[in-house]
Design a binder for these strands. Sequence first.
DNA 1: CGTAATTTTGACTCCGCTCAATTGGCGTGG
DNA 2: CCACGCCAATTGAGCGGAGTCAAAATTACG
Lengths: 261, 261
Amino acid sequence: MTAALAIVKTDYHRKAIFMSQADKPAGARKFEVTCSNCNLRETCLPGGVRTSDLERVENIVYARRRVRRGESIFAAGDEFRAVYGIRSGFFKTSLIDDEGREQVTGFFMGGEILGMDGLGSGRYTGSAIALEDSEVCVMPFSLVEEMAREVPSLQRHLHAVLAREIVRDHGVMMLLGSMRAEERLATFLVNLSRRFVRRGYSASDFHLRMTREEIGSYLGLKLETVSRLFSQFQKDHLIEVNQKHVRILDIDALEQVLAHK
Amino acid sequence: MTAALAIVKTDYHRKAIFMSQADKPAGARKFEVTCSNCNLRETCLPGGVRTSDLERVENIVYARRRVRRGESIFAAGDEFRAVYGIRSGFFKTSLIDDEGREQVTGFFMGGEILGMDGLGSGRYTGSAIALEDSEVCVMPFSLVEEMAREVPSLQRHLHAVLAREIVRDHGVMMLLGSMRAEERLATFLVNLSRRFVRRGYSASDFHLRMTREEIGSYLGLKLETVSRLFSQFQKDHLIEVNQKHVRILDIDALEQVLAHK
DNA sequence: CGTAATTTTGACTCCGCTCAATTGGCGTGG
DNA sequence: CCACGCCAATTGAGCGGAGTCAAAATTACG
Protein backbone atom coordinates (compact mmCIF):
# COMPACT_ATOMS: atom_id res chain seq x y z
CA MET A 1 0.00 0.00 0.00
CA THR A 2 2.83 2.31 0.84
CA ALA A 3 4.49 1.33 -2.37
CA ALA A 4 1.36 1.97 -4.37
CA LEU A 5 0.98 5.39 -2.85
CA ALA A 6 4.56 6.18 -3.64
CA ILE A 7 3.97 5.31 -7.22
CA VAL A 8 0.90 7.44 -7.50
CA LYS A 9 2.83 10.30 -5.99
CA THR A 10 5.61 9.84 -8.46
CA ASP A 11 3.08 9.80 -11.25
CA TYR A 12 1.72 13.15 -10.27
CA HIS A 13 5.18 14.53 -9.93
CA ARG A 14 6.01 13.39 -13.43
CA LYS A 15 2.77 14.68 -14.76
CA ALA A 16 3.53 18.14 -13.42
CA ILE A 17 6.85 18.12 -15.18
CA PHE A 18 5.46 16.60 -18.29
CA MET A 19 2.51 18.92 -18.60
CA SER A 20 2.47 20.85 -21.82
CA GLN A 21 -0.08 22.71 -23.89
CA ALA A 22 -0.30 20.02 -26.48
CA ASP A 23 -0.78 17.13 -24.13
CA LYS A 24 -2.82 18.47 -21.25
CA PRO A 25 -5.49 16.16 -19.87
CA ALA A 26 -8.90 16.46 -21.43
CA GLY A 27 -10.65 16.90 -18.10
CA ALA A 28 -12.85 14.08 -16.86
CA ARG A 29 -12.83 12.43 -20.26
CA LYS A 30 -9.63 10.73 -19.30
CA PHE A 31 -11.44 8.20 -17.17
CA GLU A 32 -14.29 7.29 -19.46
CA VAL A 33 -12.37 4.39 -20.90
CA THR A 34 -9.40 2.93 -19.10
CA CYS A 35 -6.99 0.30 -20.32
CA SER A 36 -8.93 -2.34 -18.39
CA ASN A 37 -11.97 -2.00 -20.54
CA CYS A 38 -10.29 -0.91 -23.76
CA ASN A 39 -10.87 -3.41 -26.53
CA LEU A 40 -7.53 -2.53 -28.10
CA ARG A 41 -5.54 -3.46 -25.04
CA GLU A 42 -3.98 -6.60 -26.43
CA THR A 43 -2.24 -4.90 -29.32
CA CYS A 44 -1.41 -1.83 -27.24
CA LEU A 45 1.26 -1.41 -24.61
CA PRO A 46 -0.58 -2.87 -21.61
CA GLY A 47 -1.23 -6.07 -23.56
CA GLY A 48 -0.41 -9.20 -21.61
CA VAL A 49 -0.37 -7.39 -18.28
CA ARG A 50 -2.48 -9.37 -15.90
CA THR A 51 -5.53 -7.84 -14.30
CA SER A 52 -4.00 -7.41 -10.87
CA ASP A 53 -1.21 -5.24 -12.29
CA LEU A 54 -3.40 -3.47 -14.77
CA GLU A 55 -4.72 -1.03 -12.25
CA ARG A 56 -1.24 0.32 -11.72
CA VAL A 57 -0.19 0.09 -15.33
CA GLU A 58 -3.06 2.13 -16.64
CA ASN A 59 -1.59 5.12 -14.86
CA ILE A 60 0.90 5.40 -17.66
CA VAL A 61 -1.88 6.78 -19.78
CA TYR A 62 -1.49 10.26 -18.56
CA ALA A 63 -3.92 11.86 -20.97
CA ARG A 64 -5.95 11.48 -24.11
CA ARG A 65 -5.41 13.77 -26.99
CA ARG A 66 -7.61 14.45 -29.97
CA VAL A 67 -6.02 15.20 -33.31
CA ARG A 68 -7.80 16.35 -36.39
CA ARG A 69 -7.15 15.07 -39.86
CA GLY A 70 -3.94 16.61 -41.14
CA GLU A 71 -2.53 17.44 -37.72
CA SER A 72 0.58 15.79 -36.35
CA ILE A 73 1.04 14.39 -32.86
CA PHE A 74 4.78 14.90 -33.13
CA ALA A 75 7.18 15.99 -35.83
CA ALA A 76 10.73 15.03 -36.71
CA GLY A 77 13.10 16.85 -34.38
CA ASP A 78 10.59 17.35 -31.56
CA GLU A 79 11.80 16.45 -28.13
CA PHE A 80 10.89 12.88 -27.25
CA ARG A 81 8.65 12.70 -24.23
CA ALA A 82 5.99 10.11 -24.86
CA VAL A 83 4.82 7.24 -26.95
CA TYR A 84 1.25 7.25 -28.19
CA GLY A 85 -1.29 4.45 -28.31
CA ILE A 86 -3.91 4.93 -30.98
CA ARG A 87 -7.34 4.90 -29.40
CA SER A 88 -9.16 5.61 -32.64
CA GLY A 89 -8.33 6.89 -36.08
CA PHE A 90 -5.62 6.43 -38.63
CA PHE A 91 -2.07 7.76 -39.01
CA LYS A 92 0.87 7.85 -41.31
CA THR A 93 4.47 8.20 -40.16
CA SER A 94 7.05 9.72 -42.44
CA LEU A 95 10.58 10.99 -42.79
CA ILE A 96 11.73 13.99 -44.77
CA ASP A 97 15.22 13.83 -46.20
CA ASP A 98 17.64 16.66 -46.95
CA GLU A 99 16.17 17.22 -50.38
CA GLY A 100 12.66 17.47 -48.98
CA ARG A 101 11.53 14.11 -50.29
CA GLU A 102 8.95 12.47 -48.09
CA GLN A 103 9.18 8.80 -47.31
CA VAL A 104 6.11 7.30 -45.68
CA THR A 105 7.40 4.69 -43.24
CA GLY A 106 4.08 3.25 -42.17
CA PHE A 107 0.35 3.46 -41.67
CA PHE A 108 -1.07 2.90 -38.20
CA MET A 109 -4.47 2.21 -36.73
CA GLY A 110 -6.21 1.47 -33.42
CA GLY A 111 -4.11 -0.20 -30.74
CA GLU A 112 -0.79 0.44 -32.46
CA ILE A 113 1.96 2.50 -30.89
CA LEU A 114 3.55 5.62 -32.33
CA GLY A 115 6.71 7.47 -31.41
CA MET A 116 9.10 4.71 -30.47
CA ASP A 117 11.70 5.97 -32.91
CA GLY A 118 12.38 8.87 -30.55
CA LEU A 119 13.59 6.62 -27.80
CA GLY A 120 17.21 6.47 -28.79
CA SER A 121 18.21 10.02 -29.45
CA GLY A 122 15.81 11.99 -27.27
CA ARG A 123 14.14 13.39 -30.38
CA TYR A 124 11.63 11.93 -32.77
CA THR A 125 13.26 11.15 -36.09
CA GLY A 126 10.01 11.12 -38.03
CA SER A 127 6.56 12.67 -37.91
CA ALA A 128 3.15 11.15 -37.21
CA ILE A 129 0.22 12.72 -39.01
CA ALA A 130 -3.46 11.90 -38.61
CA LEU A 131 -5.19 10.84 -41.81
CA GLU A 132 -8.58 11.21 -40.18
CA ASP A 133 -9.82 12.70 -36.93
CA SER A 134 -8.26 10.53 -34.26
CA GLU A 135 -7.60 10.10 -30.60
CA VAL A 136 -4.43 8.88 -28.92
CA CYS A 137 -3.43 7.86 -25.42
CA VAL A 138 -0.39 9.82 -24.28
CA MET A 139 2.09 7.65 -22.41
CA PRO A 140 5.02 9.65 -21.03
CA PHE A 141 8.01 7.48 -21.57
CA SER A 142 9.57 8.20 -18.21
CA LEU A 143 6.49 6.64 -16.65
CA VAL A 144 6.58 3.70 -19.02
CA GLU A 145 10.19 2.98 -18.12
CA GLU A 146 9.55 3.34 -14.42
CA MET A 147 6.57 1.04 -14.54
CA ALA A 148 8.37 -1.44 -16.74
CA ARG A 149 10.97 -1.86 -14.00
CA GLU A 150 8.28 -2.74 -11.53
CA VAL A 151 5.94 -4.84 -13.66
CA PRO A 152 7.81 -7.52 -15.60
CA SER A 153 4.86 -8.33 -17.82
CA LEU A 154 4.74 -4.72 -18.93
CA GLN A 155 8.47 -4.77 -19.55
CA ARG A 156 8.14 -7.86 -21.67
CA HIS A 157 5.31 -6.42 -23.67
CA LEU A 158 7.15 -3.16 -24.22
CA HIS A 159 10.02 -5.15 -25.64
CA ALA A 160 7.63 -7.14 -27.77
CA VAL A 161 6.11 -3.96 -29.15
CA LEU A 162 9.54 -2.57 -30.01
CA ALA A 163 10.55 -5.83 -31.63
CA ARG A 164 7.30 -5.97 -33.56
CA GLU A 165 8.16 -2.65 -35.12
CA ILE A 166 11.59 -3.97 -36.09
CA VAL A 167 10.07 -7.06 -37.66
CA ARG A 168 7.51 -4.95 -39.49
CA ASP A 169 10.28 -2.74 -40.85
CA HIS A 170 12.18 -5.77 -42.07
CA GLY A 171 9.06 -6.86 -43.90
CA VAL A 172 8.87 -3.50 -45.60
CA MET A 173 12.53 -3.78 -46.53
CA MET A 174 11.79 -7.08 -48.18
CA LEU A 175 8.85 -5.56 -50.00
CA LEU A 176 10.86 -2.60 -51.24
CA GLY A 177 13.98 -4.58 -51.96
CA SER A 178 12.68 -7.55 -53.81
CA MET A 179 9.09 -7.23 -54.96
CA ARG A 180 7.68 -5.97 -58.20
CA ALA A 181 5.06 -3.25 -58.26
CA GLU A 182 2.00 -5.55 -58.36
CA GLU A 183 3.29 -7.65 -55.51
CA ARG A 184 3.87 -4.57 -53.42
CA LEU A 185 0.35 -3.30 -53.85
CA ALA A 186 -1.16 -6.73 -53.28
CA THR A 187 0.89 -7.12 -50.10
CA PHE A 188 -0.27 -3.73 -48.98
CA LEU A 189 -3.93 -4.54 -49.51
CA VAL A 190 -3.75 -7.94 -47.87
CA ASN A 191 -1.97 -6.44 -44.89
CA LEU A 192 -4.54 -3.67 -44.49
CA SER A 193 -7.35 -6.18 -44.77
CA ARG A 194 -5.91 -8.36 -42.01
CA ARG A 195 -5.47 -5.46 -39.68
CA PHE A 196 -9.01 -4.24 -40.28
CA VAL A 197 -10.45 -7.68 -39.55
CA ARG A 198 -8.67 -7.88 -36.24
CA ARG A 199 -10.36 -4.65 -35.25
CA GLY A 200 -13.78 -5.89 -36.19
CA TYR A 201 -14.08 -4.15 -39.54
CA SER A 202 -14.79 -5.80 -42.84
CA ALA A 203 -11.92 -7.70 -44.40
CA SER A 204 -13.09 -6.97 -47.89
CA ASP A 205 -14.66 -3.58 -47.82
CA PHE A 206 -12.80 -0.54 -46.63
CA HIS A 207 -12.02 3.08 -47.05
CA LEU A 208 -8.45 4.08 -47.79
CA ARG A 209 -7.52 7.02 -45.65
CA MET A 210 -4.39 7.85 -47.60
CA THR A 211 -3.82 9.26 -51.06
CA ARG A 212 -2.29 7.41 -54.00
CA GLU A 213 0.80 9.48 -53.49
CA GLU A 214 1.14 8.34 -49.87
CA ILE A 215 0.61 4.74 -50.86
CA GLY A 216 3.21 5.22 -53.57
CA SER A 217 5.71 6.72 -51.18
CA TYR A 218 5.24 3.84 -48.77
CA LEU A 219 5.60 1.25 -51.52
CA GLY A 220 8.43 2.95 -53.38
CA LEU A 221 6.25 3.66 -56.42
CA LYS A 222 4.94 6.76 -58.16
CA LEU A 223 1.33 7.70 -57.67
CA GLU A 224 0.52 7.05 -61.33
CA THR A 225 1.84 3.52 -61.00
CA VAL A 226 -0.33 2.94 -57.95
CA SER A 227 -3.35 4.24 -59.82
CA ARG A 228 -2.62 2.06 -62.83
CA LEU A 229 -2.26 -1.00 -60.63
CA PHE A 230 -5.59 -0.35 -58.96
CA SER A 231 -7.16 -0.20 -62.42
CA GLN A 232 -5.28 -3.34 -63.42
CA PHE A 233 -6.45 -5.26 -60.35
CA GLN A 234 -9.97 -4.13 -61.05
CA LYS A 235 -9.75 -5.29 -64.65
CA ASP A 236 -8.57 -8.67 -63.36
CA HIS A 237 -11.54 -8.87 -60.98
CA LEU A 238 -9.34 -8.94 -57.90
CA ILE A 239 -10.82 -5.80 -56.43
CA GLU A 240 -13.32 -3.05 -57.07
CA VAL A 241 -11.98 0.45 -56.63
CA ASN A 242 -13.80 3.70 -56.55
CA GLN A 243 -11.55 6.49 -55.47
CA LYS A 244 -10.76 5.75 -51.83
CA HIS A 245 -13.24 2.94 -51.49
CA VAL A 246 -11.88 -0.56 -52.04
CA ARG A 247 -13.70 -3.86 -52.11
CA ILE A 248 -11.63 -6.98 -52.25
CA LEU A 249 -13.30 -9.51 -54.53
CA ASP A 250 -10.76 -12.29 -54.47
CA ILE A 251 -8.41 -12.25 -51.53
CA ASP A 252 -6.95 -15.63 -52.48
CA ALA A 253 -6.05 -14.44 -55.93
CA LEU A 254 -4.57 -11.34 -54.36
CA GLU A 255 -2.39 -13.51 -52.17
CA GLN A 256 -1.48 -15.50 -55.26
CA VAL A 257 -0.05 -12.36 -56.78
CA LEU A 258 2.62 -12.64 -54.11
CA ALA A 259 3.16 -16.34 -54.53
CA HIS A 260 4.31 -16.51 -58.12
CA LYS A 261 7.19 -14.18 -58.72
CA MET B 1 25.59 -7.62 -0.45
CA THR B 2 22.78 -10.06 0.01
CA ALA B 3 21.16 -8.68 -3.09
CA ALA B 4 24.34 -9.03 -5.09
CA LEU B 5 24.72 -12.60 -4.03
CA ALA B 6 21.15 -13.34 -4.92
CA ILE B 7 21.73 -12.00 -8.40
CA VAL B 8 24.84 -14.05 -8.89
CA LYS B 9 22.96 -17.08 -7.80
CA THR B 10 20.17 -16.31 -10.21
CA ASP B 11 22.70 -15.90 -12.95
CA TYR B 12 24.05 -19.34 -12.42
CA HIS B 13 20.60 -20.77 -12.25
CA ARG B 14 19.74 -19.18 -15.56
CA LYS B 15 22.98 -20.29 -17.07
CA ALA B 16 22.23 -23.86 -16.22
CA ILE B 17 18.88 -23.62 -17.91
CA PHE B 18 20.25 -21.70 -20.80
CA MET B 19 23.15 -23.99 -21.44
CA SER B 20 23.19 -25.50 -24.88
CA GLN B 21 25.71 -27.03 -27.19
CA ALA B 22 25.88 -24.03 -29.42
CA ASP B 23 26.40 -21.48 -26.71
CA LYS B 24 28.44 -23.19 -24.07
CA PRO B 25 31.13 -21.11 -22.42
CA ALA B 26 34.54 -21.33 -23.99
CA GLY B 27 36.31 -22.16 -20.75
CA ALA B 28 38.52 -19.56 -19.10
CA ARG B 29 38.56 -17.41 -22.21
CA LYS B 30 35.36 -15.82 -21.07
CA PHE B 31 37.14 -13.62 -18.59
CA GLU B 32 39.98 -12.36 -20.71
CA VAL B 33 38.08 -9.28 -21.75
CA THR B 34 35.09 -8.07 -19.77
CA CYS B 35 32.70 -5.27 -20.65
CA SER B 36 34.64 -2.92 -18.36
CA ASN B 37 37.70 -2.98 -20.53
CA CYS B 38 36.01 -3.62 -23.87
CA ASN B 39 36.60 -0.80 -26.28
CA LEU B 40 33.26 -1.44 -27.95
CA ARG B 41 31.27 -0.92 -24.79
CA GLU B 42 29.73 2.39 -25.77
CA THR B 43 27.97 1.07 -28.87
CA CYS B 44 27.15 -2.25 -27.23
CA LEU B 45 24.46 -2.99 -24.67
CA PRO B 46 26.32 -1.94 -21.48
CA GLY B 47 26.95 1.48 -23.01
CA GLY B 48 26.16 4.33 -20.66
CA VAL B 49 26.09 2.09 -17.61
CA ARG B 50 28.23 3.73 -14.98
CA THR B 51 31.28 1.97 -13.60
CA SER B 52 29.73 1.09 -10.26
CA ASP B 53 26.93 -0.85 -11.96
CA LEU B 54 29.11 -2.27 -14.65
CA GLU B 55 30.43 -5.04 -12.48
CA ARG B 56 26.93 -6.42 -12.13
CA VAL B 57 25.90 -5.72 -15.69
CA GLU B 58 28.76 -7.58 -17.24
CA ASN B 59 27.29 -10.75 -15.87
CA ILE B 60 24.78 -10.65 -18.68
CA VAL B 61 27.56 -11.75 -20.96
CA TYR B 62 27.16 -15.35 -20.24
CA ALA B 63 29.61 -16.62 -22.80
CA ARG B 64 31.63 -15.84 -25.84
CA ARG B 65 31.07 -17.72 -29.02
CA ARG B 66 33.27 -18.02 -32.05
CA VAL B 67 31.70 -18.33 -35.46
CA ARG B 68 33.50 -19.06 -38.64
CA ARG B 69 32.85 -17.34 -41.90
CA GLY B 70 29.64 -18.67 -43.40
CA GLU B 71 28.24 -19.97 -40.11
CA SER B 72 25.14 -18.49 -38.56
CA ILE B 73 24.66 -17.55 -34.92
CA PHE B 74 20.94 -18.01 -35.29
CA ALA B 75 18.54 -18.74 -38.11
CA ALA B 76 14.99 -17.68 -38.86
CA GLY B 77 12.62 -19.79 -36.81
CA ASP B 78 15.10 -20.67 -34.06
CA GLU B 79 13.89 -20.21 -30.55
CA PHE B 80 14.80 -16.79 -29.21
CA ARG B 81 17.03 -16.99 -26.18
CA ALA B 82 19.69 -14.35 -26.45
CA VAL B 83 20.88 -11.23 -28.15
CA TYR B 84 24.46 -11.09 -29.35
CA GLY B 85 27.00 -8.31 -29.11
CA ILE B 86 29.63 -8.45 -31.81
CA ARG B 87 33.05 -8.65 -30.21
CA SER B 88 34.86 -8.92 -33.51
CA GLY B 89 34.05 -9.73 -37.10
CA PHE B 90 31.35 -8.91 -39.57
CA PHE B 91 27.80 -10.19 -40.14
CA LYS B 92 24.86 -9.97 -42.44
CA THR B 93 21.27 -10.46 -41.35
CA SER B 94 18.69 -11.66 -43.82
CA LEU B 95 15.18 -12.88 -44.36
CA ILE B 96 14.04 -15.58 -46.72
CA ASP B 97 10.55 -15.25 -48.15
CA ASP B 98 8.16 -17.95 -49.28
CA GLU B 99 9.62 -18.03 -52.76
CA GLY B 100 13.12 -18.48 -51.39
CA ARG B 101 14.24 -14.98 -52.21
CA GLU B 102 16.82 -13.64 -49.78
CA GLN B 103 16.58 -10.11 -48.54
CA VAL B 104 19.65 -8.85 -46.71
CA THR B 105 18.36 -6.57 -43.96
CA GLY B 106 21.67 -5.28 -42.69
CA PHE B 107 25.41 -5.56 -42.22
CA PHE B 108 26.81 -5.47 -38.71
CA MET B 109 30.21 -4.99 -37.14
CA GLY B 110 31.94 -4.69 -33.76
CA GLY B 111 29.84 -3.37 -30.89
CA GLU B 112 26.53 -3.78 -32.69
CA ILE B 113 23.76 -6.03 -31.42
CA LEU B 114 22.17 -8.93 -33.26
CA GLY B 115 19.01 -10.87 -32.60
CA MET B 116 16.62 -8.26 -31.30
CA ASP B 117 14.02 -9.20 -33.89
CA GLY B 118 13.32 -12.37 -31.95
CA LEU B 119 12.11 -10.53 -28.93
CA GLY B 120 8.51 -10.22 -29.91
CA SER B 121 7.50 -13.66 -31.03
CA GLY B 122 9.89 -15.90 -29.14
CA ARG B 123 11.55 -16.88 -32.39
CA TYR B 124 14.08 -15.13 -34.56
CA THR B 125 12.47 -13.91 -37.75
CA GLY B 126 15.73 -13.64 -39.66
CA SER B 127 19.16 -15.18 -39.72
CA ALA B 128 22.57 -13.77 -38.80
CA ILE B 129 25.51 -15.09 -40.80
CA ALA B 130 29.18 -14.34 -40.27
CA LEU B 131 30.91 -12.89 -43.32
CA GLU B 132 34.31 -13.46 -41.71
CA ASP B 133 35.54 -15.38 -38.71
CA SER B 134 33.96 -13.59 -35.79
CA GLU B 135 33.29 -13.63 -32.09
CA VAL B 136 30.12 -12.63 -30.29
CA CYS B 137 29.12 -12.07 -26.67
CA VAL B 138 26.08 -14.18 -25.82
CA MET B 139 23.61 -12.27 -23.68
CA PRO B 140 20.67 -14.42 -22.58
CA PHE B 141 17.69 -12.18 -22.86
CA SER B 142 16.12 -13.33 -19.62
CA LEU B 143 19.20 -12.00 -17.86
CA VAL B 144 19.13 -8.78 -19.82
CA GLU B 145 15.51 -8.19 -18.83
CA GLU B 146 16.15 -9.04 -15.22
CA MET B 147 19.13 -6.74 -15.02
CA ALA B 148 17.34 -3.98 -16.89
CA ARG B 149 14.74 -3.93 -14.14
CA GLU B 150 17.42 -3.37 -11.55
CA VAL B 151 19.76 -1.05 -13.37
CA PRO B 152 17.91 1.89 -14.95
CA SER B 153 20.89 2.98 -17.02
CA LEU B 154 20.98 -0.46 -18.61
CA GLN B 155 17.27 -0.31 -19.23
CA ARG B 156 17.58 3.04 -20.93
CA HIS B 157 20.41 1.85 -23.09
CA LEU B 158 18.58 -1.31 -24.07
CA HIS B 159 15.72 0.86 -25.24
CA ALA B 160 18.12 3.12 -27.07
CA VAL B 161 19.62 0.12 -28.84
CA LEU B 162 16.20 -1.12 -29.90
CA ALA B 163 15.19 2.33 -31.09
CA ARG B 164 18.45 2.72 -32.97
CA GLU B 165 17.57 -0.37 -34.95
CA ILE B 166 14.15 1.07 -35.76
CA VAL B 167 15.68 4.35 -36.90
CA ARG B 168 18.24 2.48 -38.97
CA ASP B 169 15.48 0.47 -40.63
CA HIS B 170 13.58 3.64 -41.45
CA GLY B 171 16.71 4.97 -43.10
CA VAL B 172 16.91 1.85 -45.23
CA MET B 173 13.25 2.25 -46.14
CA MET B 174 13.98 5.76 -47.34
CA LEU B 175 16.94 4.47 -49.32
CA LEU B 176 14.93 1.70 -50.95
CA GLY B 177 11.82 3.76 -51.42
CA SER B 178 13.12 6.96 -52.88
CA MET B 179 16.72 6.76 -54.05
CA ARG B 180 18.16 5.92 -57.41
CA ALA B 181 20.76 3.23 -57.81
CA GLU B 182 23.82 5.51 -57.61
CA GLU B 183 22.50 7.24 -54.53
CA ARG B 184 21.93 3.91 -52.85
CA LEU B 185 25.45 2.70 -53.42
CA ALA B 186 26.97 6.04 -52.42
CA THR B 187 24.93 6.03 -49.22
CA PHE B 188 26.06 2.51 -48.52
CA LEU B 189 29.74 3.37 -48.96
CA VAL B 190 29.56 6.53 -46.88
CA ASN B 191 27.76 4.67 -44.13
CA LEU B 192 30.32 1.87 -44.07
CA SER B 193 33.14 4.38 -44.03
CA ARG B 194 31.70 6.19 -41.00
CA ARG B 195 31.25 3.01 -39.07
CA PHE B 196 34.79 1.86 -39.81
CA VAL B 197 36.23 5.18 -38.65
CA ARG B 198 34.46 4.96 -35.35
CA ARG B 199 36.13 1.62 -34.77
CA GLY B 200 39.55 2.96 -35.53
CA TYR B 201 39.84 1.67 -39.08
CA SER B 202 40.58 3.73 -42.13
CA ALA B 203 37.72 5.83 -43.44
CA SER B 204 38.88 5.55 -46.99
CA ASP B 205 40.44 2.18 -47.34
CA PHE B 206 38.58 -0.99 -46.56
CA HIS B 207 37.78 -4.52 -47.45
CA LEU B 208 34.20 -5.41 -48.34
CA ARG B 209 33.27 -8.60 -46.60
CA MET B 210 30.15 -9.17 -48.64
CA THR B 211 29.58 -10.15 -52.27
CA ARG B 212 28.08 -7.93 -54.95
CA GLU B 213 24.97 -10.03 -54.71
CA GLU B 214 24.62 -9.35 -50.98
CA ILE B 215 25.17 -5.64 -51.49
CA GLY B 216 22.58 -5.76 -54.24
CA SER B 217 20.07 -7.56 -52.08
CA TYR B 218 20.53 -5.02 -49.31
CA LEU B 219 20.19 -2.08 -51.71
CA GLY B 220 17.36 -3.51 -53.78
CA LEU B 221 19.55 -3.87 -56.87
CA LYS B 222 20.85 -6.72 -58.99
CA LEU B 223 24.45 -7.74 -58.62
CA GLU B 224 25.27 -6.63 -62.16
CA THR B 225 23.99 -3.17 -61.39
CA VAL B 226 26.15 -2.97 -58.29
CA SER B 227 29.16 -4.05 -60.29
CA ARG B 228 28.46 -1.50 -63.01
CA LEU B 229 28.07 1.26 -60.44
CA PHE B 230 31.40 0.41 -58.85
CA SER B 231 32.99 0.69 -62.28
CA GLN B 232 31.14 3.93 -62.89
CA PHE B 233 32.28 5.45 -59.59
CA GLN B 234 35.80 4.42 -60.42
CA LYS B 235 35.61 6.03 -63.83
CA ASP B 236 34.42 9.23 -62.14
CA HIS B 237 37.38 9.11 -59.74
CA LEU B 238 35.16 8.80 -56.68
CA ILE B 239 36.65 5.49 -55.62
CA GLU B 240 39.13 2.83 -56.60
CA VAL B 241 37.78 -0.70 -56.61
CA ASN B 242 39.59 -3.92 -56.93
CA GLN B 243 37.29 -6.81 -56.25
CA LYS B 244 36.54 -6.54 -52.53
CA HIS B 245 39.03 -3.81 -51.81
CA VAL B 246 37.67 -0.27 -51.93
CA ARG B 247 39.51 3.00 -51.56
CA ILE B 248 37.44 6.14 -51.33
CA LEU B 249 39.13 8.93 -53.25
CA ASP B 250 36.60 11.68 -52.84
CA ILE B 251 34.24 11.27 -49.94
CA ASP B 252 32.79 14.76 -50.44
CA ALA B 253 31.87 14.02 -54.03
CA LEU B 254 30.39 10.74 -52.88
CA GLU B 255 28.21 12.62 -50.42
CA GLN B 256 27.30 14.99 -53.23
CA VAL B 257 25.88 12.09 -55.16
CA LEU B 258 23.20 12.01 -52.49
CA ALA B 259 22.68 15.74 -52.41
CA HIS B 260 21.53 16.40 -55.95
CA LYS B 261 18.65 14.23 -56.83
C1' DC C 1 46.02 -27.28 -59.47
C1' DG C 2 41.46 -27.66 -60.99
C1' DT C 3 36.79 -26.53 -60.23
C1' DA C 4 33.47 -23.49 -58.53
C1' DA C 5 32.23 -19.02 -57.33
C1' DT C 6 32.47 -14.24 -58.05
C1' DT C 7 32.98 -10.26 -60.83
C1' DT C 8 32.95 -7.66 -64.97
C1' DT C 9 31.14 -6.21 -69.28
C1' DG C 10 28.06 -6.16 -73.32
C1' DA C 11 23.62 -6.27 -75.79
C1' DC C 12 18.97 -6.13 -75.44
C1' DT C 13 14.45 -5.76 -73.02
C1' DC C 14 10.89 -4.10 -70.22
C1' DC C 15 8.91 -2.22 -66.02
C1' DG C 16 7.98 1.73 -63.89
C1' DC C 17 8.90 6.82 -64.41
C1' DT C 18 8.06 11.32 -66.66
C1' DC C 19 5.31 14.47 -68.78
C1' DA C 20 0.85 15.78 -70.02
C1' DA C 21 -4.06 16.03 -70.56
C1' DT C 22 -8.52 14.82 -68.68
C1' DT C 23 -11.90 13.55 -65.40
C1' DG C 24 -14.02 13.42 -60.99
C1' DG C 25 -14.97 14.88 -56.18
C1' DC C 26 -15.65 18.25 -52.84
C1' DG C 27 -15.72 22.46 -50.23
C1' DT C 28 -16.40 27.47 -50.58
C1' DG C 29 -18.50 31.50 -51.65
C1' DG C 30 -21.32 34.21 -54.66
C1' DC D 1 -27.90 25.88 -55.67
C1' DC D 2 -24.63 26.13 -58.90
C1' DA D 3 -20.11 27.82 -60.44
C1' DC D 4 -15.71 27.88 -59.55
C1' DG D 5 -11.32 26.31 -58.17
C1' DC D 6 -8.48 23.03 -56.07
C1' DC D 7 -6.81 18.63 -55.29
C1' DA D 8 -6.90 13.73 -56.20
C1' DA D 9 -7.18 10.22 -59.45
C1' DT D 10 -7.10 8.30 -64.04
C1' DT D 11 -5.18 7.40 -68.44
C1' DG D 12 -2.06 7.80 -72.45
C1' DA D 13 2.43 8.20 -74.93
C1' DG D 14 7.15 7.91 -74.86
C1' DC D 15 11.45 7.24 -72.47
C1' DG D 16 15.14 5.62 -69.66
C1' DG D 17 17.15 3.16 -65.79
C1' DA D 18 17.74 -1.03 -64.05
C1' DG D 19 16.85 -5.90 -65.06
C1' DT D 20 17.79 -10.10 -67.92
C1' DC D 21 20.54 -13.06 -70.44
C1' DA D 22 24.97 -14.35 -71.80
C1' DA D 23 29.91 -14.80 -72.06
C1' DA D 24 34.47 -13.94 -70.50
C1' DA D 25 37.83 -12.93 -66.92
C1' DT D 26 39.44 -13.23 -62.43
C1' DT D 27 39.75 -15.10 -57.95
C1' DA D 28 38.90 -18.23 -54.11
C1' DC D 29 39.31 -22.50 -52.19
C1' DG D 30 39.40 -27.47 -51.36
